[in-house]
């Protein structure tokens, strides 16, 4: 069963053809990694999945992206889509407010005001993001007092609090030190049980460690995709082999 079905997707930034007829299925409740050199379009593709590219002027999209069999560029409410496909960004970007307010933000934006319900959601989300024990005594202190790694887990908790189906991660550990990265990776072991995870990563070892499926992009094209094992051990395309063996990128 597939969470996303991407068919003949083309994306242009103005005249720049950034994604070229992408065809890709992203399976349900698995971790799919997008790898490839900078500028290959992997982040752009990730951002088409929750329509974050809408925020950028001059983007045109052709083809179709189906999420649970509904074309998200045709007949889907964008805000609803984004509550179901949460996103974690490259740099930890907590809001300038308390830890509690950060996690509750999305639900409050949807109109939930009941303090008890929000408390429960905040606790559950922070537990799922493996942050609860570290912050439970200072939920109402400012989020900027947290370390970078904690901030990123807070952003994951903020996303989980929406009870999404999908978590999209755009190089979530590239701004973190190895220890914080290890924590997020171990956290992803739990996330994969509940969510479909799509992660863009620059680290091939990270893709190898955490991804079930891997897709390799180059110059806006999807070169190859399949089981992570197969992509890394016996790639079909010479370009994939070249990238993962470190010949370029």
């Amino acid at each position: 069963m597939n969470t996303f079905d991407i068919k003949n997707l083309d994306l242009f930034y103005g005249d720049n053809h950034a994604l070229k007829s992408i065809n890709l299925a992203i399976p349900h409740k698995q971790v799919t990694a997008f790898i490839g050199p900078s500028g290959c379009g992997k982040s752009t593709l990730l951002r088409t999945l929750n329509r974050m590219n809408d925020l950028i002027a001059g983007v045109t999209i052709k083809g179709s992206v189906k999420f649970d069999d509904a074309d998200i560029y045709a007949d889907v409410d964008v805000r609803k889509l984004r509550t179901r496909c949460g996103m974690v960004f490259q740099k930890p970007n907590p809001f300038p407010m308390s830890i509690w307010e950060n996690v509750a933000f999305g639900q409050k934006a949807q109109g939930l005001t009941d303090k008890k319900q929000l408390d429960a959601i905040v606790e559950e989300a922070l537990r799922s993001a493996a942050l609860w024990d570290e912050v439970k005594d200072r939920l109402h202190t400012h989020a900027f007092g947290l370390s970078g790694g904690q901030q990123q887990r807070l952003c994951i908790a903020r996303t989980i609090a929406m009870k999404p189906d999908v978590i999209l991660m755009d190089e979530p550990t590239s701004a973190l030190d190895p220890i914080a990265t290890a924590k997020i990776e171990s956290l992803m072991e739990n996330l994969r049980k509940e969510f479909t995870v799509v992660i863009v990563t620059h680290s091939m070892s990270q893709a190898k460690r955490i991804a079930d499926k891997t897709a390799f992009f180059l110059m806006g094209e999807l070169i190859e995709h399949g089981e992570t094992q197969q992509i890394f051990n016996e790639p079909n395309d010479s370009r994939t082999r070249g990238y993962i063996s470190g010949d370029f990128g």
Partner: peptide, 27 residues
């Protein structure tokens, strides 16, 4: 006000008005 705030807020499905009133204006 950093673009990252807006992205995060819209990424959570918050409306534009909510984002402005609760996030951007206070910042």
């Amino acid at each position: 006000v950093p673009l990252a705030y807006r992205e995060a807020s819209y990424g959570l499905g918050a409306s534009r008005l909510y984002t402005i009133v609760r996030l951007i204006l206070p910042a």
